[in-house]
Write a protein that binds this DNA or RNA. Sequence first.
DNA 1: CGAGATCGGCACGCTACGTGCCGATCGAGT
DNA 2: ACTCGATCGGCACGTAGCGTGCCGATCTCG
Lengths: 196, 196
Amino acid sequence: MTDTPATPRRRGAARTEELLQVTLDLAAEVGYAGLSIEAVGRRAGVGKHTIYRRWPSMSALLLDALSRVWTSDLDYRDTGDVRADLREQFLRSGLALSSPPIGPVYRAVIAEAQADSMLRATLHERFLVTVEQSTLDRITRAQRTGELTAEANLEFAAEVLCGTLYYRSLLSTRPIDEDAVDGLLDMFMAAYGTSN
Amino acid sequence: MTDTPATPRRRGAARTEELLQVTLDLAAEVGYAGLSIEAVGRRAGVGKHTIYRRWPSMSALLLDALSRVWTSDLDYRDTGDVRADLREQFLRSGLALSSPPIGPVYRAVIAEAQADSMLRATLHERFLVTVEQSTLDRITRAQRTGELTAEANLEFAAEVLCGTLYYRSLLSTRPIDEDAVDGLLDMFMAAYGTSN
DNA sequence: CGAGATCGGCACGCTACGTGCCGATCGAGT
DNA sequence: ACTCGATCGGCACGTAGCGTGCCGATCTCG
């Protein structure tokens, strides 16, 4: 009666990987509501301890799950046309932010962060600052090549650009479509562009 | 033994008022965590039905409580200097967004909205759109008086201005201080101002 | 002063949290 | 090959909030 255990009980790193994937799958299917430690455990066929041994809270698990899918596609291209590069990247990350699995997981982290200022700080430094920094890098290069004016305060500009995208995708009900991105870039280039 | 009932059991509109006030007080004291229907009921000395009869959910109660304190201080002054008027208003609402009771209640609504797209739509149209609209009104007037260029797409500009403030106060850990507001207005005026 | 709405209080079943304990299972080291 | 300790799944506990139902007391309006 020893039926073949197709998957022997996984442990250690393999379990960790699997749990992150289950979290992403669950988020994609049921969204933030219904995303709980018990739900992840049930779905993975895992005791709660197996999760709590790895992450101290749902928030920590969500942050790790988010890292798993957010790290790629973060860098801007550099074709020499800063407006085109920003446009492409904004549309890409706008789509990512509003689709599974990133969208629901991001929403979940933000919801929990509203009740937990430590988590808010972690979210900020681990994701938002990183995104702003890569934007800042790209427009700083454009400033050096003369595409943007020398007087521009690019730190604030990077925050305005990223902040507007996050505002629209997380608080607004409007989509991040081409019109939105073009409107945003119109303002940015009108302020700091040198070509017009 | 009939001790004087200093406050006779309130009902109807008086109760509604009191419950909104208790919600705001509670939010100011304990923040979003610990803000629940049971907590409001306990504090007000009220059965849960008395709350559920008025609002279908915590979110609805929060929205009403927010209206109560958010309606004033919304309009921009018009001194004829658009930059100064925006600056004053941004600093004022930035402070409001990060202090009790508005800050915690706003955070609570936003947290719940992440799991509920209907609530997100309500939040958007009832508050965010309103704020954007009053900003749009003010900068449209500035465009008519010639302070801003005629080609500017002010609808997107209003969204960028407000979005940046909300991003910073709700997702970032940075304060909405004079530097931030000035940086934002530098970009806005560089893009659409006529005086430089 | 009576009728009917509204009230506070209590209880229910449900779900999730975070922790503790159990015996089974795995796999690294000898 | 076998042992031993770490890790596993399963179950249970107490706490908390949700949303609903029912009760008898209390208030308001006609």
